[in-house]
């Protein structure tokens, strides 16, 4: 779901950076509310960010093809307000080290992955609202969070590709293209949802405080 350099219009790229600036500010505000000294959260966020970017190299076989994990939902669930900075930093490292993603499109890509991560964070927080501690409701929430995160990300990416690239199409064709691109991501969103629910069940059993990192 990364949008590379050169394909998107400059105004879209600049707006992406602006939106990223705003979301970063919002996230830093959220982090400051949570931590007396925000620095204390950094080692944990950094190690988990590194772990997430390593894990996103895992291929999930959906025979006959295999797909990459996006992990935006899981990152939101575990990192909370740190998710957006973590994604921004991860994408920057990928662009710097592997020329993967894009530099002018860094802002856009951070939004495409980071906004869904924040959405997932808010969805998963419902467990506190309802006081859910059993595995099943948590797994359902995790599934929803990750499924919606990927679906939302795919929809945004499809809209961007159709509207902000030199693909000259009439309105009807554009609608079809957006639909087709989003639908293609439906299986991925399902897999991602199930995968995230499994990881959450695992963590609830093994180390539940990892999921409550945002409650301190």
């Amino acid at each position: 779901m990364h949008i590379p350099d050169g394909i998107i219009s400059a105004s879209a790229a600049v707006s992406g950076y602006a939106a990223t600036g705003g979301l970063t500010w919002l996230s830093l505000r959220g982090i400051r509310k949570q931590y007396v000294n925000p620095r204390t959260g950094i080692p944990r966020a950094a190690l988990l960010t590194a772990a997430f970017f390593a894990a996103s190299l895992i291929h999930i076989p959906i025979p006959p093809v295999s797909v990459h994990l996006v992990l935006s939902g899981l990152m939101g669930v575990i990192l909370g307000w740190f998710a957006f900075p973590a994604i921004l930093v991860g994408l920057l490292l990928q662009a710097v080290m592997f020329q993967h993603g894009g530099l002018t499109t860094l802002g856009i890509n951070a939004c495409l992955m980071g906004l869904p991560a924040l959405l997932a964070y808010f969805i998963f927080r419902l467990r506190y609202v309802f006081g859910w501690e059993k595995p099943l409701p948590n797994a359902v929430l995790a599934f929803l969070a990750a499924f919606l995160a990927v679906a939302f990300g795919a929809l945004m990416a499809a809209l961007l590709i159709v509207h902000a690239t030199p693909a000259y199409m009439d309105a009807a064709a554009e609608r079809t293209a957006v639909m087709a691109l989003s639908l293609a991501y439906l299986p991925v969103a399902l897999i991602e949802g199930i995968f995230t629910a499994m990881v959450v069940i695992f963590l609830l059993k093994v180390q539940p405080d990892l999921l409550e990192g945002d409650r301190r």
Binding site: R44, I58, H59, P61, P63, L74, M198, V199, F202, Q207
Partner: peptide
């Protein structure tokens, strides 16, 4: 062998274990 959809669970466990490891190390 990660060759079918049934490998989803072990892969989720491996990912989960990795997060636990990273978390411990971060502390």
């Amino acid at each position: 062998l990660a060759n079918s959809l049934s490998s989803l669970k072990p892969l989720a466990y491996i990912t989960g274990s990795m997060l636990v490891r990273s978390h411990d190390q971060a502390e």
